[in-house]
């Protein structure tokens, strides 16, 4: 049975069916992301503390450029079909797909960096003091503490931060992925070699220090369980990433079957590209709001 109204508009809606379908789908997507955005606002406004500067702005900016560029290339691919230029269509579509996988590659790298970056909380202030001095020396310890305290301060927060609760930030030897105290205990490890992050404004890593796990109250990589910030960050960006992946797979299908569709049903094919493009622009649109809200504000 032939699917009706793939090219001509339905008399009652004035739209071909796929276009009406994609807009209804996008409406549901707005509600999905809207729910998460409102959850983000609720969590953030209700939080006593909210971390600041935890994400790389150059990387986020680069990915924003990648998505914007892909939005231009996908609309150009549709325009190429309208002009009857299949070769141009293929070029623009390939560029769009390359951008999609580029975006996902960069995002995966960002995730990897977070999953191998750890915060350590010590059992008491004296123990913390000992390791701060071991890492940064008597002189640098106060600066580093101040910096770590500041990273939790946003201009709008009324909360105060207990400086005795400051954690040491850095990498565990061997860069284990998302490990926990429980897992380390299971592996019968009683100590870790920890390389603290450089001081603010410096690129020199302090020497690695050996830390017995009995001194550690909590250890967490930058995973959703780390904090409310990372929980909502990973939820929204992972969902967005899944949309990018899903979109990219559909676009791959369009590219690899282009010759067949162009011969068989060029008008329907152009409509499919328009519909796919609408979804892709929506993915870009979500990122346009995500980037300033999560990375910058």
């Amino acid at each position: 049975m032939e699917i009706p109204y793939t090219v001509k508009p339905r008399p009652d809606t004035g739209l071909y069916n796929a276009k009406l379908g994609i807009w209804l789908f996008l409406a549901s997507e707005v509600m999905l992301f809207g729910g998460l955005f409102s959850a983000y606002i609720l969590l953030r406004v209700g939080a006593d503390l909210w971390p600041h500067g935890m994400l790389s702005i150059p990387i986020g900016t680069f990915n924003t450029f990648v998505l914007i560029f892909s939005s231009v290339t996908i609309v150009m691919s549709w325009a190429s079909l309208k002009l009857g230029k299949l070769a141009d269509f293929k070029l623009y579509m390939a560029l769009t797909i390359a951008c999609a996988f580029g975006f996902l590659g960069v995002k995966s790298y960002e995730y990897y960096v977070k999953f191998t970056h750890y915060d350590l909380w010590f059992k008491d202030d004296a123990t913390a003091q000992k390791y701060f001095v071991a890492a940064y020396g008597e002189k640098g310890e106060a600066d580093v503490r101040k910096h770590f305290v500041e990273r939790f301060h946003l201009q709008n927060t009324k909360a105060t931060y207990d400086p005795h609760e400051v954690q040491l930030v850095g990498h565990i030897e061997g860069n284990p992925l998302c490990t926990t105290l429980k897992r380390l205990a299971k592996e019968k490890q009683d100590k870790i070699l920890f390389t603290p992050d450089p001081k603010f404004g410096s690129h020199d890593h302090p020497k690695a220090i050996e830390i017995p796990l009995s001194d550690v109250k909590r250890l967490s990589a930058y995973v959703p369980a780390h904090s409310t910030f990372f929980a909502i960050y990973f939820t929204i960006t992972a969902l967005h990433g899944l949309h990018v992946l899903g979109g990219a797979l559909v676009l791959c299908y369009f590219l690899f079957t282009a010759d067949k569709w162009w011969k068989k049903a060029p008008e329907q094919f152009a409509n499919r590209i328009e519909v796919g493009g609408l979804f892709w622009h929506f993915v870009d649109l979500v990122w346009i709001f995500l980037f300033p809200i999560i990375y910058l504000l």
């Binding site: 090219v7 001509k8 508009p9 004035g14 739209l15 071909y16 276009k19 549709w78 079909l81 309208k82 060029p266 008008e267 152009a270 409509n271 590209i273 328009e274 519909v275």
Partner: peptide, 9 residues
């Protein structure tokens, strides 16, 4: 030919 924009009517 009739394209997507045209089809949307």
């Amino acid at each position: 030919s009739h394209g997507p924009g045209e089809a949307c009517g």
